[in-house]
């Protein structure tokens, strides 16, 4: 069943359209990748899906969450769905986490808010979640402050926070871009494992085609505010229809090939 759906979503600032006529839908267990370069409007789309656009931006179209249009809804209504139906992880967890609050309490906060758990239950659940995202020594780690963790660990905390209230859709906006490759690989594996376990629908936003292609089943390609391509990952990779998608695939394939000298030994 569709959880999140937009039709004709358009975002403008000072009369200039930044996102134009974007329609997409997400159900539980869907894995959708949204790919685009900086300035393509992919992150704005993500923010719009949670009612988090900066003031001054105007939206039109429809944003249906469980069939209810939330476009232009008051913040009170958005707060009911944020974290509970749709949640998000960002590129840099350090800016998304409260620097002065132990991470356990940050995970527990939404649990108490949305699920009405008491303090000790929520904290117990936070420890469970730290364990589920494979953080070492969860009982001790919940008392750590964000800056005491490594970048990869912080992103694990952000994932635990996002998933703790059992949302049905998770939006991941460049969640591994700030990380080193080896850490990125670990987080991608974890993400794969978590969405399989929880059945959450995933909207994975990235500029990096190989990263998206590894995780998503359906691919959306965005450029200058428009969706230029949409289809199953295999189709888009093998038979890209738009010129832009063709270039993306070609350059990604080439970069991938570069790292495999055993297959193509083209060296000077």
């Amino acid at each position: 069943m569709t959880v999140l759906e937009t039709t004709g979503l358009t975002i403008t600032l000072d009369g200039q359209p930044l996102v134009r006529d974007v329609s997409l839908s997400l159900a539980a267990r869907d894995r959708v990748g949204l790919i685009g370069e900086s300035g393509s409007g992919k992150s704005l789309t993500a923010l719009a899906l949670l009612g988090l656009l900066p003031p001054g931006m105007r939206t039109s179209g429809r944003i249906l969450i469980d069939g209810e249009d939330h476009l232009g809804a008051p913040d009170r209504r958005w707060r009911r769905v944020r974290g509970r139906t749709v949640s998000i992880v960002f590129q840099e967890p350090l800016t998304a986490l409260d620097p002065l609050m132990p991470v356990g309490r940050q995970i527990a906060g939404p649990l108490r808010l949305h699920q009405g758990l008491n303090r000790s239950d929520a904290e117990r659940r936070a420890i469970e979640w730290c364990d589920r995202v494979h953080l070492p020594d969860p009982a001790r780690l919940v008392r750590a402050l964000p800056h005491e963790l490594s970048g990869g660990q912080r992103q694990r905390v952000a994932l635990a926070m996002a998933l703790a209230c059992r949302p049905r859709v998770l939006i991941a906006d460049e969640p591994t871009t700030a990380l080193d490759v080896t850490v990125q690989a670990q987080i991608l594996t974890l993400l794969d494992e978590l969405i399989e376990e929880t059945g959450v629908g995933l909207l994975f936003i990235s500029h990096d085609l190989p990263v998206v292609a590894g995780l998503a089943r359906h691919l959306l390609v965005m450029r200058t505010g428009r969706l230029v391509e949409s289809g199953p990952v295999d189709d888009v990779l093998r038979r890209p229809r738009s010129g832009y998608a063709r270039q993306l695939v070609a350059s990604a394939a080439q970069v991938t090939r570069l790292a495999r000298p055993s297959v193509h030994g083209e060296y000077r």
Binding site: Q184, L209, P210, T256
Partner: peptide
């Protein structure tokens, strides 16, 4: 080896095209 393994890759057969 870990560094090499961590590089995100497109599905392998695609590159042969």
């Amino acid at each position: 080896r870990a560094l090499l393994a961590a590089i995100p890759q497109l599905p392998l057969d695609l590159e042969e095209e």
